[in-house]
Design a protein around this nucleic acid. Structure first.
Lengths: 277, 277
DNA sequence: TTGACAAATGACCGGTTAGTCATTACTATA
DNA sequence: TATAGTAATGACTAACCGGTCATTTGTCAA
C-alpha cells in the first residue's frame, strides 16, 4: 500500500515534466528505485496508474471547491474564497495540475476521457451553484456564459504560475479575478452560451451514489485511516447512514472532523450530497 | 513540392484526431497513399514535419490578425473584427487549431517550444497594439492583464466549437466577447499582471528580419507562385526593396494585391513591418 | 536451522517505433 | 529502342515499448 503511494508520487513527477505517453514504465520504476515487476504488483497497467492519479487528486480538488461553495456563509467573501481555494489547490498540487492541463485534450483512452468529463461536470455544477447564490435572477440569461468566463480565468491564469514560474500572489490574483467576475456578472447583456447550447454538452450526470456504495467506500476508508478522530467520526457516520439517530447538527460536526483529512475529502463530499447539506 | 503539401494535409488530419506522438509515420504514409521512403524524401524527420506545419499555419494566422489590427481604421469595429477574424481562422484551420491546442503545453522538443513561444509573443504584440489603439492611457496599468483576459476568452471559447461540436455563430460570439472585453478594459482597477510581471516572461523578440533575408524569402515566393497579379506585385516589391522608387501609396497597393494569397501572408507581414505601415 | 510463504526481481516476449538503403519503376532525352 | 538519371519502394535495423513469469531474496514461525 505504501509502495503504491511511492509509485504515484514518483510517476507524477515524471508525467508533469514529460507527459504521460512520453514516460515509460521503465523510467517510473528507475525513478522509484524498484523493479519493473514490482510496479505491476501495485498496478495492473500504466493506464490504471494515471486513472488512480486523476481520482486521487480530482476528488480532493473538486470536494475542496464544493465545500467552499456550499459552506461559506458570507456571500461577500464567497467568490474570493472560491478563487483563493482553487488556485491554492492548483499550486499545492502543481505537478498534478500540470499533468491535468497537459493531458486534458489528449484522448488516448475512453475511460480517461470519461473521468475527465465527470470531474469537469462536477466542478461546473459547483460553479453554477455559486453563481446562482451570488447573483440570483440577475444572471438568469447569462449564467452559463459566466461559467465559461470563470473557467477561462482559472485555466489561463493558472498556466502563468504552473508553466512560466511567475511568482504567485494568491491574494492579489483572487482579488483581481473577483473584480473581473463581478463586472461581467452584473453588466453582461450578450451571452454566447445559452441554455440550449449547454444542453448539447450536458449528458445527465450519474453522480447519485447508492447507500450501499457509500457504505462500502466508508468501510474502506475506516480500514485505511489510523488517526483516531477521523476514524471514530467515520464509524459514527457509518452507523448514522445505516440507522439515523443523531440530529443534523451532530452529523454536520462529524463531517467537519473529517473534511480536512486528505483521505476523507471525497467521502465528506459524498455525505454532504447524501444529506443535502 | 506538391508531395510535401499532400503529406502535410494528410498528417494534419491524423494529428488533429490522435495527437502528434500517437501518430506514426507509417500511418501518415498509408493515409497519404505513399511509401515510407517517400516520406523521408520530403521531410528529414517526423519532427521537421510538425515544425513545418506550425510555421505554415501560424504565419497565416498571426499575419491575418496583425493585418486587422494595423489596417482597420474604424476603431468602433476593430475589436469585433479582431475576434471575428481570429475565430474565423481557427474555424477555417480547425484541424491545425486542434493540434495547436492539444500540443501547446507538451514539451517534447526544444525547437518546438521555441517556435510556439515565438508566435505567441507575436500575437501578444498585436493584441497589445490593439488595446493601446482602442483604450489608450485609460488602460496603462491594466493593459497586460487585459491581454491575458483576451487570450483566455480566445482559448476557452474556441475549445467549445473545436472539441464539443458546438455550432458556431461567429457574429454572436464576437459581439459577446467585444462586450466583455470593453467591460473589463473600462472598469478594471485591480490588475494581476503588472508590467514587472510581464518582464519575466518576455525575452526580447528577435523579429527584425534583415534586408537580405527578406529578399531571399521574396525570391523564393516568386518562384513558388504562378498567379500573375501576385507574382508581378512581388517582383515590383522586390525591386522596391533593392532600390526605392515608388511612392508609399503604390507600395501599399502592391501589398494589398498579395495579402490574401495564402503563400504571401507572411511576406506581406514582413514587408508591413519593414515599411512600418 | 529448517521450511513455508510472500515480496521482489529482471531477463524475456511480441509488438511497434523512427529512420535507412539496396533495389526497382518511371521518365525523358538521344 | 537504349540509356541515364530521378522518384519511389518496402524489407530491414536497432531501439524501445508495455507487460509476463520463472527465479531469487527476504521474513517469519516452528
Amino acid at each position: 500500500m505504501i509502495k503504491k503511494q511511492l509509485i504515484m508520487e514518483k510517476a507524477l513527477e515524471l508525467f508533469a515534466k514529460q507527459g504521460f505517453e512520453a514516460t515509460s514504465v521503465q523510467q517510473i520504476t528507475e525513478h522509484s528505485g524498484i523493479s519493473k515487476g514490482a510496479f505491476y504488483l501495485s498496478f495492473k497497467s500504466k493506464d490504471e496508474l494515471i486513472l488512480a492519479l486523476i481520482d486521487h487528486f480530482m476528488m480532493q480538488i473538486t470536494s475542496d471547491i464544493d465545500y467552499i461553495v456550499t459552506s461559506t456563509n458570507n456571500e461577500e467573501e464567497l467568490l474570493y474564497e472560491f478563487y483563493f481555494t482553487t488556485f491554492s489547490s492548483f499550486h499545492k498540487h502543481s505537478d498534478f495540475a500540470k499533468l491535468f492541463v497537459k493531458e486534458q485534450t489528449q484522448s488516448f483512452n475512453k475511460e480517461f476521457i470519461f473521468k475527465m468529463h465527470y470531474y469537469d461536470r462536477l466542478m461546473q455544477k459547483s460553479i453554477l451553484l455559486m453563481i446562482e447564490r451570488l447573483y440570483g435572477e440577475q444572471v438568469s440569461d447569462t449564467k452559463y456564459d459566466l461559467i465559461y468566463c470563470i473557467k477561462a480565468f482559472m485555466s489561463t491564469y493558472s498556466e502563468l504560475f504552473l508553466f512560466h514560474n511567475v511568482p504567485l500572489d494568491l491574494d492579489l490574483l483572487s482579488q483581481s479575478l473577483v473584480e473581473k467576475t463581478n463586472l461581467l456578472a452584473k453588466q453582461t447583456t450578450i451571452p454566447f452560451i445559452s441554455k440550449e447550447l449547454i444542453q448539447i454538452y450536458k449528458q445527465p450526470i450519474n453522480d447519485e451514489v447508492t447507500k450501499e456504495q457509500l457504505l462500502e467506500i466508508m468501510e474502506q476508508k475506516i480500514e485505511e485511516i489510523n488517526d483516531s478522530i477521523e476514524k471514530e467520526s467515520l464509524i459514527l457516520l457509518k452507523e448514522q447512514v445505516l440507522k439515523p439517530t443523531f440530529a443534523p447538527v451532530i452529523v454536520k460536526g462529524l463531517l467537519e472532523n473529517i473534511r480536512n483529512h486528505s483521505h476523507c475529502k471525497w467521502v465528506s463530499y459524498l455525505l454532504r450530497s447524501f444529506y443535502k447539506f
